[in-house]
Design a protein around this nucleic acid. Structure first.
Lengths: 160, 160
DNA sequence: GTCGCTGCAAAGTCTTTGCAGAGAG
DNA sequence: CTCTCTGCAAAGACTTTGCAGCGAC
């Protein structure tokens, strides 16, 4: 079976486009476009990682020390972005949540339990089966998330 | 396509067997078998739901008011059970975690965002695809979890 | 100017920990 | 008897909220 149905990662949206969308969203809801909100969006965009609020805050403080962005603002902005479906959050076993831009297309996650690296993927076959399952139960699917945990090839090498 | 690959829910292990396994596990690790630990295991077994530590604690207090079981003990026991793979935890978007007996066979979750009801299922096709995906990346799968969010048929009826 | 936004600190949740006494082995 | 477990309360980690001044529009 040729591998034509599984795609790994890619970034589809230009930052300028994302920013325009965000501005439009704010305007639509009579919210203000502030420098903090832009910085948070931009930092999320430029990070390939999935960030915790704390990590995001630290990145911003390092990059824009003058701004003295408060952690509360990071939380508030992330909530705003999540409600608007601009970002998506992932919940992990322990405590804490990580955020990523959700404007990219839907995807699932492969998580390395050794190094924490997250690889994204989409598999058509799985997406199809999900519909079969929910249809069968009369369940109306709104969203789904899938995480596969394991050890990435790099960490396997390091161990041996 | 006949539906022969998707199974919905079932309970496979007798409580007595589960209890014996638990006792053996404790003995192996030189841990003690206490009434609190038994009550927590039993309550988890008799609940078809996925319980939060708080909910589990309340159930226990209602059923065994004399025992005055502390919430700390519930947390401590759940950690113990999770480390021993007797229970599995599910993390949710907001805060909080829910626990279920994990001795049952592996399964995924369908979660109703209206009423919170959780339906379990296993789909062979999806399980297969997961292996295809991880093999392709040289990723060693240890575990996975999948949640489908949506509105169950009952809640759809109630709304209309 | 107006009204929403921000930083700060205080207050909330949920979870973990320290400790002295209770209880299993 | 010994050494782990437990309940309680205090401490922690993470997140949210109240408020006065700031800043976008």
């Amino acid at each position: 079976m040729p591998n034509i149905t599984t795609d790994f990662k890619d970034k589809t949206l230009e930052y300028s486009e994302l920013l325009e969308n965000f501005k439009a969203l704010l305007k639509k809801n009579k919210l203000k476009f502030t420098i903090q909100r832009e910085v948070i969006l931009e930092t999320l965009y430029n990070s390939d990682e999935h960030l915790t609020p704390e990590a995001l805050h630290q990145l911003i403080q390092k990059k824009y020390p003058k701004l003295k962005t408060g952690i509360a603002t990071v939380y508030r902005t992330l909530s705003l972005l999540e409600d608007s479906n601009v970002v998506t959050s992932l919940s992990f076993g322990a405590q804490g949540k990580k955020y990523e831009l959700g404007a990219k297309e839907h995807h699932d996650h492969l998580i390395c339990t050794e190094c924490g690296k997250i690889t994204e993927f989409v598999d058509e076959e799985i997406e199809k089966r999900q519909h079969v399952i929910t249809d069968e139960l009369g369940f109306k699917m709104v969203d789904h998330s899938m995480q596969i945990y394991g050890i990435c090839s790099q960490c396997q090498k390091n161990k041996s």
